[in-house]
Write a protein that binds this DNA or RNA. Structure first.
Lengths: 341, 341
DNA sequence: CTGAAAGCGCTTACAG
DNA sequence: CTGAAAGCGCTTACAG
């Protein structure tokens, strides 16, 4: 019983039925008599037979595959993806698998083609987009995806005019939590660190939450404390080092990502000050690394499990013709030592 | 010019040629006149046409897809994959893409089916296997993959009788480097930490290197210093804590993975001793986190770029009918502060 | 250089 | 409950 590449026709011959009946039996069609079905399935197992996905996909026009596109915001040639998104991967592949979908993965620079063709070529039934990108750059990609009638869901901030569906963490609430916590510790001059312009709506929303918290405490956002930095450790480091150099007074930093927060911690200690003694620092994301830096980083955790599972559920719903509404998961402040609580 | 799902037939009609010519033109066949080819390709672009992969795959019996199976050694329900393997992901997807292959990813417990069906169902042309698994458990999976004539390559130790091809880091050389370094710092009682039995050939080889270094220095491996631990932070911590508790004398730990080394550092400091003042610690892998623990971890770096690219190149070679020989990449000792150099 | 034709291996209306 | 038949959209020998 060792056929190299058995087909449903081979099974039909052995079972003494038509190929159509084999196909039905293998898909558990109720049209097939139970005994026949069992016999056919047994033969399939014996032969180590599996349905040819290309043939089935060609016939049904479904690939039962999701394409996961992780875009890499780092400009360089370095293939390091933001670990925050990598940590969602396990949840994504598992929930996809439990829903009967395979996951195709691609990691690309924002400048690359975003592979509208994943769906057009029938390799995937829908896309999940992941990454902290520059909104002004990826916006037009989203438009062309939408124009091509591609089904996709993006993890990020829900921007009003943006096409497609999204799932996000409630970034504004997270920003509020971070700032509230620092305020409750008596901090008053809180730097907000990151590119909080419209180019990064997630970060902009985090800053909005920060501003609301300040205002609720009777403080106004101080433009001198709104500090731009690109989303890398080096940039977080450089921005804070420059601040200290210039003698700007501040007693806390809310970095809109952990990556920048880690750079900030280093800059403070390079300058001979201590965290949290002199300066409290809070990040955002709760990277796997966050608990291990020194001091351990207080941060706003995004629920990666809910996010990963939610993304898969949403795209599968879209694929199967259902309706999806954009929604947000709840962030959670994780207090460690970098804030001085 | 807005067809919902254009086919090569649509293009043929527009171009006034046969469908066969369209197919040839799109594949850059030299059989097609240049002008015809250009015209056809232009029409395809205008229509946003992409070759239906299911149809092409059915016809050619190639999916141009590699399945990447990452097996998760952690027993629990936690979807955290060893970050060491995650960090290879970018290199794998990029080199696959540059060779014209897509990557299907699946993360599974060792106890799950290993999806022989990826190839049998024509979803993938070959598999890459990644993970620190228990060799006695996955060995039989490898056998069944081999029995099903599946093309696969595994990252790990090349074990003589193991079916299939593998690529690995030269674990023995790495173990030697770690131990040599500790010896050069005057350390003499060096614990080797991990499951260095035959269940984990990678770790066994690392220990062999350790033993060779000891012997070259005129020392013998001391059974009291060969300490078993599972590959988790908690287990590394517990094993070292127990050693300290029992009053065993040692001045260094060579943990066969960074994950355990990080637990070991914590155990030493929990016990009121300092790293590297009292005890030097060296790990293996160079996780992204390794540079950020306190003190920063001296470790043996595996070249993940070479590994990722090598795995892809090897599996593609196998797919295309070439010969591949098992090979090893060179490890590199990264000296940080946990060893006291 | 081009076309007509076969066929990859399924799924599913249609007929019985 | 089962079968004969059509057809999904390609690629590629074969013929010209």
């Amino acid at each position: 019983m060792k056929l190299e590449n058995p087909t449903s026709r081979d099974i039909a011959e052995i079972a003494g039925v038509s190929q159509a009946t084999v196909s039905r039996a293998l898909r558990d069609s109720p049209l097939v008599r139970e005994e026949t079905r069992r016999r056919i399935q047994q033969i399939a197992r014996d032969l180590n037979y599996f349905v040819n996905r290309n043939a089935a996909g060609l016939r049904t026009q479904h690939s039962n595959t999701i394409a996961l596109l992780v875009f890499d915001e780092t400009e360089g040639k370095d293939a390091q993806i933001n670990p925050f998104f990598l940590s969602m991967l396990g949840y994504i592949t598992r929930s996809a698998s439990s829903l009967g979908y395979d996951v195709l993965i691609s990691m690309q620079q924002l400048t690359d083609d975003w592979h509208i063709e994943y769906q057009a070529s029938h390799r995937a039934d829908g896309l999940i987009l992941l990454g902290y990108g520059d909104y002004t750059e990826y916006r037009e990609k989203l438009d062309s995806l939408a124009a091509a009638n591609t089904r996709f869901i993006i993890y990020g901030a829900p921007v009003g005019s943006q096409p497609g569906h999204s799932l996000s963490c409630d970034n504004e609430a997270g920003g509020r939590q971070a700032a509230d916590h620092l305020l409750s510790l008596g901090r008053r001059r809180i730097v907000i660190l990151g590119d909080t312009s419209k180019r990064h709506p997630e970060f902009e929303f985090r800053r909005n939450g920060y501003r609301e918290a300040l205002e609720a405490a009777g403080l106004a956002e101080d433009p001198d404390l709104v500090i731009h930095a690109d989303n890398t450790e080096q940039d977080g480091h450089a921005a804070v080092a420059a601040l200290l150099e210039r003698g700007v007074e501040f007693d806390a930093v809310f970095a809109v990502t952990d990556v920048m927060a880690i750079g900030a911690i280093q800059a403070v200690s390079d300058h001979g000050l201590t965290v949290p003694g002199d300066i409290s620092i809070v990040g955002f994301d709760d990277l796997p690394r966050a608990a291990y830096v020194s001091p351990p980083l207080t941060t706003v955790r995004q629920n990666i499990r809910e996010a990963g599972e939610g993304l898969v559920k949403a795209i599968v719903t879209l694929i199967e013709g259902g309706e999806v509404e954009s929604q947000a998961t709840a962030p959670e402040l994780i207090v460690r030592e970098s804030c001085g609580a």
